[in-house]
Design a protein around this nucleic acid. Structure first.
Length: 152
DNA sequence: GCCAACGTTGGC
DNA sequence: GCCAACGTTGGC
């Protein structure tokens, strides 16, 4: 069992959007970074814990607890010419991009960036490091426990 | 809108 | 394989 932080732009897919989905499940499409892709395709397992994070918005931070709900499979948006995420280097035979499904377990209060930064036990979190841009980062068991405690 | 940080591309 | 140029992310 591992833990992850996954960023989404709420103007694209917000925690409320996912809460409104059937089964509260969404394909985590649009990841176009090899390291983040590899986390999904090589390291995630069904049932792993996920911190649902809103980025590029007025109040960035953790907004929900979720879980990995499927193994990785080809991201359909890479084949869609009309999609912002279309990739002409990708073919059905050799897809470059994969995604897992993520199921929202529960929406939480906003645990915003300032509060994360103000919590000494969370100083190790990748998302708090200067210059971090990765949209998917591993979270340690200790960090996960501290965050679920703050959200209890 | 600014800018720091980082990833990718492509010429050599 | 190096590295400059360029593009993107994402907080502020």
């Amino acid at each position: 069992m591992r833990y992850w932080l996954m960023k989404s732009e709420p103007s694209d897919v917000s925690v409320d959007d996912v809460a409104a989905m059937p089964k509260k499940t969404v394909p985590w499409y649009g990841v176009r970074n090899f390291q983040a892709r590899n986390f999904m395709s090589k390291e995630m397992d069904v049932g792993d814990g996920v911190l649902f994070y809103h980025s590029s918005c007025p109040e960035p931070g953790i907004v929900g607890l979720a879980e990995v709900a499927s193994k990785a499979y080809p991201d359909v948006t890479q084949f869609d010419r009309k999609s912002h995420y279309f990739d002409d280097k990708s073919t059905r035979e050799n897809p470059r991009w994969m995604n897992v499904d993520v199921r929202l377990v529960r929406k939480t209060r906003l645990l915003g960036l300032p509060e994360l930064r103000a919590t000494p036990s969370l100083a190790t979190m990748r998302v708090l490091q200067k210059g971090n841009r990765l949209s998917i980062t591993p979270v340690s068991a200790r960090e996960w426990q501290e965050i679920t405690r703050l959200l209890a």
